[in-house]
Simulated assay, not measured.
Amino acid sequence: MDLEDRKLHSSSFGAAATAYAEHRPDYAQAALRWVLDLAPGTRVLDLGAGTGKLTATLIDLGVDVVAVEPDPQMLAELRRGLPGVRALPGSAEQIPLPDASVDAVVAGNAMHWFDMAVAGPEIARVLAPGGVLAGLWNVIDDRVGWAAGLEQVSGPAAIGPRDTFGAWRAATAKLHLTRDGAPAGFGSPEQAEFPHGQRRTADSLVATLGTRAGMLVMPETDRAARLSEIRAYLAGRPETADGDFTLPMLTGVLRVRRT
């Protein structure tokens, strides 16, 4: 994806902020426990916070959270859903916080949108020495048969290059965090995955896939046709045809520590 396409995709979420907040999954707490020192008073920046899915999980773990999000509509949805959280406009490339003001910076399904050549030094600036930078991605576990079939039917617009376990493992070396090793000022990257899942119905899973960036930028007729194909696939699978089911997922994590 070139720079212009990345900008188009990354700016597509605001128009679907309410649907994003309703349908996108939270994150495995075990993943954040692996990333963070959960001592009282730990200061965490949720960068590219969106509507606050990762922010809410951090709150549940009892850390001191500040959220930063560039899209006004996503930020408004975050503030509506989590009114007690300090939530600021800003971006990975321009973080509205003082030097060395947080112990960890985390990004949920957002780091692949960052321009790490600019964002890396900016993140290092706001991190205290020894602090952690971590990207988290919720991915579909395509080792499960029906989930692998869903990927084939959905196509890359709905289930993209970082959205399944197999693809995410293959792509981690190409992500901005690890493209040239760790960003300057950070140690070597570490990687782990943690089991996760989300209770869904066919309708809610179709709605979830409709919030993917590739789907949001499609012409409406193409988008409707693709979602109809996905709905037909789910209706034809015994695992998903009737009532609630669990979408098998993992939360994949890349973390580095500021030196």
Score class of each variant (00 low, 15 high):
Ala207Gln: 08
Val105Lys: 10
Ser154Trp: 10
Arg43Asn: 01
Ala213Phe: 02
Met1Glu: 07
Ala16Leu: 01
Thr221Tyr: 02
Pro195Met: 05
Asn109Ser: 15
Arg6Glu: 11
Met218His: 07
Ser228Asn: 08
Gly166Glu: 04
Pro129Ala: 12
Ala170Glu: 12
Lys7Asn: 05
Arg179Asp: 01
His112Ala: 10
Leu75Lys: 02
Thr164Asn: 07
Leu36Arg: 09
Lys174Ser: 12
Ala170Lys: 14
Gly181Ala: 08
Glu122Trp: 00
Val153Thr: 13
Arg257Leu: 01
Gly210His: 02
Ala202Thr: 08
Val253His: 00
Leu32Pro: 04
Tyr20Asn: 05
Leu234Ile: 02
Arg255Trp: 06
Glu69Leu: 13
Pro83Met: 03
Gln29Thr: 06
Pro89Thr: 05
Met218Phe: 03
Lys174Glu: 10
Asp142Val: 14
Asp180Met: 10
Asn109Asp: 15
Gly108Asn: 06
Lys53Thr: 04
Val44Lys: 12
Asp163Leu: 00
Ala148Met: 06
Arg212Asn: 08
Gln191His: 14
Ser204Trp: 14
Ser11Asn: 11
Val139Ala: 15
Ala110Asn: 05
Arg169Cys: 12
Glu220Ile: 13
Ser10Ala: 14
Pro70Leu: 06
Ser154Glu: 10
Val106Ile: 14
Arg226Ala: 15
Asp242Phe: 11
Ala202Val: 08
Val44Ser: 01
Thr221Pro: 04
Gly50Thr: 12
Leu8Met: 11
Pro129Gly: 11
Pro25Asp: 08
Gly130Met: 07
Asp46His: 02
Thr246Asp: 13
Leu36Ala: 08
Ala92Met: 10
Phe186Met: 00
Thr55Gln: 04
Ala184Leu: 00
Pro195Arg: 04
Ser11Ile: 00
Gly120Asp: 09
Pro96Ala: 11
Ala30His: 06
Arg24Tyr: 01
His9Thr: 03
Val65Phe: 13
Asp163Gly: 03
Asp180Glu: 14
Val106His: 09
Trp113Asn: 05
Ala124Asn: 01
Arg86Ala: 15
His23Arg: 09
Thr55Glu: 07
Leu127Gly: 03
His196Ile: 03
Ala110Trp: 00
Gly197Ala: 15
Val63Ser: 08
Ala167Leu: 15
Val139Lys: 14
Val66His: 05
Arg6Lys: 13
Leu36His: 04
Arg79Asp: 02
Ser12His: 06
Val126Tyr: 10
Leu209Cys: 01
Asp64His: 08
Ala117Thr: 14
Ser11Val: 10
Ala49Gln: 01
Ser10Lys: 02
Asp103Met: 12
Trp137Tyr: 12
Ala16Lys: 01
His112Asn: 13
Phe13Cys: 07
Gly243Gln: 00
Trp137Arg: 14
Ala167Trp: 04
Asp71Phe: 04
